[in-house]
């Protein structure tokens, strides 16, 4: 067995790490649910911004 394979055996495989990443998202949603104002389903934005007549209100990394 090559050194590379031996080295990789020490770490969890990709399926497990990927599942852990999804678990982290689940944790985020749980924390978010506890920290945020409940979503009002009757105040959801229109399906698509284009043609909605509304100015975009989302945040973006280009905004200082």
């Amino acid at each position: 067995m090559s050194d590379s394979n031996k080295s990789q055996e020490k770490l969890p495989g990709r399926p497990l790490v990927g599942t852990f990443a999804l678990g982290f998202i689940l944790l985020l949603l749980i924390v978010d649910n506890a920290e945020s104002t409940p979503i009002n389903p009757f105040n959801a934005p229109p399906l698509v911004a284009l043609g909605s007549g509304e100015a975009p209100s989302g945040a973006h990394c280009t905004q200082p």
Binding site: L28, E35, A49, L50, E54, S57, G58, A59, H60, C61
Partner: peptide, 24 residues
């Protein structure tokens, strides 16, 4: 762009996630 009204971005969301955890 058409759905959100703004361009594709990544970093803002990650900073917001950090803020949520810090707040918690």
């Amino acid at each position: 762009l058409v759905i959100a009204g703004q361009s594709w971005g990544v970093v803002y969301g990650l900073g917001l996630w950090g803020a949520k955890f810090a707040q918690a």
